[in-house]
Nucleic acid binder design. Structure first.
Lengths: 342, 342
DNA sequence: TTGTATGCGTTATCAA
DNA sequence: TTGATAACGCATACAA
């Protein structure tokens, strides 16, 4: 693992560094014999080109920046898993940044990533971010950029997301189809694209079933801990009381489940619950949690693939693409309330 | 955010690059006036030193390599969270690698990290790794190195771990104190330090209670999916049948819980269960899962702090330290079988 | 106090 | 077919 350089090879073989360099790159202008010599010796002493030098020379660092709100999160850790897998196969490295849901941190992280000369950036917006000028600026400068999960349509940047609308629609429609009519929606901060899409899916399903939308049934949480109790109480205080909950994050699903249980409310008999979550072991919960899940790893993979594609054809005009991956609705336990439900 | 270099500043201010370089580093040999000029202009055009050039120069890359088996894992994603937080505060970046439990990948990742000129490496061994010579070699070369979670005592390298022995002891002792005598141990691959420590804690607790160790009650799994069923069946086939399970990973705990449930075995009445896991929502499971948890984030933080300390006093002899953090035993549900249990 | 030259590892340009 | 040289951005030994 010693830092053996092209110079060492040149010296040992009594060649110039340029010859060695060309031989290693299998250049046509080098004699087969010399090539063989160089290749063999390089192999023997386990030569590895110095990526730092390559970065400095060329304009590619072979590094991908990944900026996410939180690593310690089922969705994002799975997505990063997908990203890392693709990146590794394509010879890229992954530099991780967390925004902790802070706009300031997002900005700082982007600057750091740029300073690091990453070849491209995978970005999932913080929930505080409403001003998108930093991203526009970076994109305008030609930095390859792919947004995933938490995106922004106004950005005209490639995106990879789950089909949040359809997922939310399916969840809500399922609740409606089992006779629920007062469906509360416990969701995450309103700026986020995923919040809006899920809300839209929820509303569309209500519409389709002719159930009027009641904004009092929608509550926005943050990603902080222990907030579910209060939100659930607010919702339970509505009249008539909700007969179903549709929650938008792991934490809210768990918090809601717990709050309902603690208040002696039977799930799904009294109140039915579906969570938009990537929680593990949803089926092992008490009661089992019905879920809409996102293909997190696949989202990460596709985003990374897209980004690398963007990077490697940087010269050509970069087409903007949006990929929407299907979510999966898994119903657990019987939530049938009114078999005759319209 | 344009790649503005020291040259641009020099040209604009009609100075040499070395003067600018020194002024920016606040060197004593530059006049206050010149410094002010340079600083202000640099600020104005938003100059950021190119870390790639700095790395090549040989000083430091301000990058930390993190090599873990799997990112999409509660323990590791929390640990990385801690690592990233500390690194960010200290001006370091985090480059992530996954070994996917493969020795080959571990080796390749280490070489990549070295090639990338990381200033130091945080490492958690793959379950396949038994030959440690690659790590010894790297350490011998002076690469700052901190192992966490999955370590190796023979390595004489700084380590940050949870107190696996005591955690396993506590879990087993709890089971024993509630009258259990046939405690099965469903664990992870045997090479791992954490496996051995947990096994030792398990055995020590048995000893303390005068219960003979029965190797038939110990089963080693991998980190693959869906293996718990078979292992549980093997254990249930023992005679007499186990009256408790102590499992060593998130997946095994969940798999075991599920397998027992499916076989109609009441927990904890028939068989008591404690998992060494960082699962979320253990209390919301059916039945609630008793756990021993590791302070994952803190382990990450301490490991990162230790590594940065090592890096920044590289010249002095690097002392080797081992930090052991306490685990937390949380008993959920009543597992009392025999109140008079010896 | 400031400038010039050199080198980190590599590739590209130009010469031989 | 091969070699010498410059350049990427920066820091530093040495000159001035």
């Amino acid at each position: 693992m010693d830092p053996v350089t092209i110079k060492d090879i040149a010296r040992a073989l009594n060649l110039s560094t340029s010859t060695v360099s060309r031989a290693l790159r299998d250049s046509y202008e080098i004699s087969p014999e010399t090539k063989r010599l160089v290749m063999e010796y390089a192999e023997k002493i386990n030569y590895r080109p110095n990526p730092i030098a390559l970065s400095l020379k060329g304009n590619s660092s072979k590094a991908l920046g990944v900026i996410v709100p939180q690593i310690a999160n089922n969705f994002f850790s799975q997505a990063i898993n997908g990203i890392e897998a693709i990146a590794y196969n394509r010879g890229y490295h992954v530099i991780i940044f967390q925004t902790h849901e802070s706009y300031e941190r997002e900005l700082a992280n982007m600057q750091q990533a740029v300073a690091r000369r990453v070849d491209g950036l995978l970005l999932s917006l913080s929930s505080e971010t409403s001003d998108l000028s930093h991203i526009k600026a970076l994109h305008a400068q030609g930095m390859p950029l792919v947004l995933f999960d938490r995106v922004a349509d106004e950005l005209n940047v490639s995106q990879v997301v789950a089909d949040n609308f359809t997922g939310a629609y399916a969840a809500t429609a399922h609740l409606l189809s089992t006779g629920r009519r007062r469906i509360a929606h416990l969701t995450i901060p309103p700026y986020l694209s995923i919040t809006q899409e899920r809300l839209a899916g929820y509303r569309a399903a209500l519409d389709a079933y002719g159930v009027p939308f009641d904004e009092n049934l929608v509550r926005y949480g943050t990603f902080g801990p222990d907030e579910a109790d209060q939100l659930v109480d607010e919702l339970l205080a509505q009249s008539p009381r909700p007969d179903a909950f549709f929650t938008a994050s792991d934490r809210l699903a768990l918090g809601c489940l717990k709050a309902l249980r603690e208040r002696g409310i039977a799930i799904p008999e009294d109140i039915s619950l579906i969570g938009f979550t990537n929680l593990q072991a949803a089926e092992m919960l008490n009661p089992p949690l019905s879920t809409v899940t996102q293909p997190a790893q696949e989202i990460g993979q596709l985003a990374a693939e897209r980004l690398i594609e963007l990077i490697e054809r940087k010269h050509k005009a970069a087409p903007v693409s949006t990929v929407k991956l299907p979510t999966v609705l898994t119903v657990r336990g019987s939530s049938q309330r009114d078999p005759a439900g319209s």
